[in-house]
C-alpha cells in the first residue's frame, strides 16, 4: 500500500515538472467543446440538447490524449522493468499509476466541465448531474484506457492503435454518462444511469488492473 502511494506521489511530482502535458489535454477539452456551438449554431435549446453528449465525447477524447503516456516513459527508461521486479506486487503499482493518471488527467476535466456546461446553457441541476457522472465516469475511462495503453506499449503506430482499441470499449461509459444528464434534463431522473455507471466502475476496478498487469508483463518479455 505504501508503495502504491509512493508511485502516485512520484507521478504527480513528474506531472508537476512537466505541466505542459497536463495543460495541453485541458485546453484540448475546452477547445473541442467550444467548437460545437460554432459548427452547429448558438440556439440555446439545441445547445442544451447536445451538451451532455458533446461534453462527454470531448472528455473521452481528452482522456485519450494522455493515455499513451501512461506507461510509455516508464517503459522507455527502464522504470517499468524495475517495477515488475520490485517485491511489491505489480498490480498494486499499476493501480497507483492508474490513480495518478486519473488525478492528473481525469479530475481536472471534472472540475472544468461545469464551466464549459454554462456555455451550453445548462441549469444548475444539470451541471450537478454532469459533474457527478464525470466524477464516476472518468476513473472508468482511466481504468479501461490503461489496458489499451499496456497492450500497445512499444508498438509502432501505438497511438492510433490505442484509440482504435479503447474507444469502442468506452461506449457504455459514454451512453450511461451522457444519458444520465439527458435523463435529468428530460425529467426522468438520473438515478438508474448513475447506478449502472457506478456498477461498471466497480467491475473495472476489479478487472482492469489485473488485465493491465498481464499486458505489461507480456510487453516486458
Amino acid at each position: 500500500m505504501k508503495s502504491m502511494l509512493a508511485i502516485i506521489r512520484r507521478d504527480l511530482l513528474l506531472a508537476m515538472r512537466r505541466k505542459s502535458e497536463v495543460l495541453t489535454a485541458l485546453f484540448f477539452f475546452m477547445i473541442v467543446v467550444s467548437l460545437f456551438p460554432l459548427g452547429i449554431g448558438p440556439e440555446p435549446a439545441l445547445l442544451r440538447k447536445i451538451a451532455p453528449g458533446v461534453l462527454w465525447v470531448a472528455a473521452l477524447l481528452a482522456t485519450m490524449l494522455g493515455l499513451q503516456r501512461m506507461f510509455a516513459p516508464d517503459h522507455a527508461d527502464g522504470t517499468l522493468e524495475q517495477m515488475a521486479l520490485s517485491p511489491t506486487p505489480l498490480g498494486l503499482l499499476v493501480g497507483g499509476k492508474i490513480a495518478a493518471h486519473w488525478l492528473v488527467s481525469g479530475l481536472p476535466l471534472v472540475l472544468l466541465a461545469p464551466v464549459l456546461g454554462l456555455q451550453f446553457d445548462l441549469d444548475a441541476g444539470a451541471l450537478g448531474v454532469l459533474v457527478v457522472t464525470l466524477l464516476v465516469g472518468t476513473p472508468l475511462l482511466s481504468l479501461i484506457g490503461a489496458i489499451g495503453a499496456a497492450l500497445t506499449l512499444g508498438i509502432r503506430g501505438g497511438g492510433v492503435l490505442l484509440s482504435l482499441l479503447v474507444l469502442p470499449l468506452y461506449v457504455p461509459a459514454l451512453i450511461f454518462g451522457a444519458g444520465a444528464v439527458d435523463a435529468h434534463i428530460s425529467g426522468l431522473g438520473a438515478g438508474g444511469h448513475l447506478s449502472l455507471l457506478a456498477a461498471l466502475l466497480a467491475l473495472a476496478v476489479f478487472f482492469a488492473p489485473w488485465a493491465t498487469t498481464a499486458a505489461l508483463r507480456i510487453a516486458l518479455e
Binding site: 527508461d77 527502464g78 522493468e81 511489491t88
Partner: peptide, 28 residues
Amino acid sequence: MLFLGHHGALKEELTPLENLGLAAALDG
C-alpha cells in the same frame, strides 16, 4: 534480487536524491 539493466531507470526530471528515495519506496 536486484537487476540493473541497459536502461537507467532514472527519471530525468527528478534529482538523484528523489530517484533513490522513490526507487526504495517502490520496493516498499
